[in-house]
């Protein structure tokens, strides 16, 4: 069942001339993990803000078409109701620290305090969320004393703890080390398996291929491709349009020209590449 529906969505910021999103159609099912890829300026962040309600409620501007999440239309809702259903974490972790809290533990609890979760329920929820993202050992540190990668985990945890129906993430791992990134993708996958719907804007194609259910390729504010990772990420359209693709795919494509890759289907993950090159 679709929990997120975008129908002919076009959006223009108040101070820009051209629309940033043009006629976007998108449906996301409950518990689905959808990755959004695209060159910078393609509209990924704006799409995230639209799903999270900040377009149009915070940024104003002109939004046409239908944006519906969990059966509610964005124009019929207010931002403070909308955020109860949709959680958002974005790229710059420093600016996501509330500034009102002195420890990571309190920082994570901030959202729960705001929506009136009883104290007795709060502590176990924060502890669970900290354990899930692997930052239990940072609980007593000041959020400001952490590295960028650690702050990004805090920002993600601060939203996860609120258990939104839909989780929207805009490059949440940009400052993380490689294995840290893989771990966080794993956490996001787990959340999707538990029924949370995830929309993630990212450049890191290898982990998108390994963890996402579906990939949407955005170009100049329009949906260029939408489908399974194996289809979208191997499409020849991507490289032409300036998208990043995984080295497995580009190398297998080259190998295919040289007769070293026998299969029709190009690989997007390490496993697929291993299997294909072995045969």
């Amino acid at each position: 069942m679709a929990i997120v529906t975008l129908q002919n969505v076009t959006y223009k910021y108040p101070l820009t001339e051209a629309p940033v999103l043009q006629n976007v159609n998108l449906q996301v099912n409950e518990g689905e993990f959808v990755a959004v890829i695209g060159p910078n300026g393609a509209g990924k962040s704006t799409l995230c803000y639209t799903l999270a309600g900040f377009v149009p409620h915070f940024f104003k501007g002109e939004l046409t078409g239908i944006v519906e999440v969990a059966g509610v239309e964005t124009h019929q809702s207010s931002l403070n109701e909308w955020v109860l259903n949709v959680g958002l974490a974005f790229q710059n972790p420093f600016n996501q620290i509330s500034g009102a809290k002195y420890t990571v533990f309190e920082e994570i609890a901030f959202g729960l305090e705001n929506i009136g979760v009883p104290r007795g329920e709060m502590k176990p929820r924060v502890e669970k969320a900290l354990a899930l993202t692997g930052i239990s050992d940072l609980a007593d540190r000041s959020p400001y004393s952490l590295s960028g990668g650690q702050q990004q985990r805090v920002a993600l945890t601060s939203i996860l703890v609120m258990e939104p129906k839909v989780l929207v993430l805009d490059e949440p791992t940009s400052q993380m080390d490689p294995i840290g990134t893989r771990e966080v993708f794993g956490v996001i996958r787990t959340m999707a398996e538990r029924g949370m719907t995830v929309v993630l804007a990212e450049h890191k194609v290898e982990w998108i291929a390994a963890f996402a259910d579906r990939v949407v390729a955005l170009k100049d504010g329009q949906v260029l491709l939408d489908g399974k990772p194996g289809e979208v990420l191997t499409s020849p359209l991507l490289e032409e349009a300036g998208f990043g693709i995984s080295r497995y795919t580009s190398t297998a494509r080259k190998a295919k020209e040289m007769g070293l890759w026998k299969k029709d289907q190009l690989p997007v993950t390490l496993e697929e590449a291993v299997e294909g090159f072995r045969s």
Binding site: Y49, F58, G87, F90, S158, M162
Partner: peptide, 9 residues
């Protein structure tokens, strides 16, 4: 920051 704290209710 306004967006971030708003997103957290």
């Amino acid at each position: 920051r306004a967006i971030a704290i708003e997103a957290r209710g």
